[in-house]
């Protein structure tokens, strides 16, 4: 479903060039749950941003669902993000001036879904994350864990095939973190492919597949779990 071949990302600032990713190769199949770990500054966020089409890459080839991402224009990338990808951020990134209902509605409106269908999906997603009674609350009235669950509901509402999470539990205590992790596992069981960056080794271990990014590349000692993943190694 996701194929990255020799992806490189070069950040050019006045003083320094940073190779955030170098000849990065990765294949991800439909339905996988991957935890990405690695030292700070190794390029995990960069990888996730490129996977989510939030940033362009410098060279290489990236196919998502068979679409050559490098050939899309800005509007096409925006539409593709909207339809295929759900994002979960470390800082939750809820819009402070919108209540929970309206926050979840944001990506649905960009997709042009009509109001009755939006309502159905939002209510269903709020139910799923256990916040149905709080639809009219503003984000600042919720705890961090609750906010992250809303953010997950927002990511789910568009029924994306692909969920990208950058340290979704980074701002949460361990209890909250475990709740969020359980939610993600549930979502994965329902069919979504998930890539999650995390610093928490315990959470990473719960994911069926672990990859480690070191210095802009997949580390050699990346552990693969399961026969399906072994197949990927052969493919790469």
């Amino acid at each position: 479903m996701l194929k990255m071949n020799n992806i490189s990302k070069l950040y050019q600032t006045e003083m320094v060039q940073t190779h955030a990713l170098r000849d990065f190769n990765l294949h991800v199949d439909e339905g996988e749950f991957i935890a990405v770990t690695g030292p700070s500054g190794s390029g995990k966020t960069t990888f996730l941003n490129i996977a989510g089409m939030l940033e362009p890459f410098s060279s290489g080839e990236y196919l998502l669902d068979g679409i050559d991402v490098g050939k899309l224009n800005d509007n096409q990338r925006a539409d593709c993000r909207n339809q295929k990808i759900g994002f979960i951020f470390q800082g939750f990134n809820l819009i402070p001036d919108l209540n929970l209902y309206e926050n979840i509605e944001v990506p649905l409106r960009y997709r042009g879904i009509k109001a009755s269908e939006r309502k159905r999906r939002i209510e269903q997603c709020l139910e799923q994350v256990g916040l149905a009674s709080r639809a009219k609350h503003l984000p600042q009235q919720l705890s961090g864990g609750q906010q992250q669950r809303v953010a997950i509901a927002r990511a789910l509402a568009g029924e994306p095939r692909f969920l990208l999470a950058d340290e979704p539990t980074g701002n949460l205590d361990s209890l909250m973190a475990r709740q969020v992790m359980e939610l993600l596992e549930q979502i994965n069981r329902d069919g979504a492919t998930i890539i999650m960056v995390t610093h928490d080794p315990e959470l990473a271990r719960r994911a069926p597949r672990n990859i480690q990014v070191v210095d802009g590349q997949l580390a050699d000692f990346t552990l693969y779990q399961g026969a399906q993943n072994l197949k990927n190694v052969a493919g790469a």
Binding site: G52, L54, D74, N75, N82, I95, P107, Y110
Partner: peptide
């Protein structure tokens, strides 16, 4: 700024 970036990530076109 962050909100605008988030909206873009969630699929807002520039025109939106």
């Amino acid at each position: 700024t962050k909100q605008i970036g988030t909206r873009r990530a969630l699929g807002a076109r520039k025109s939106a």
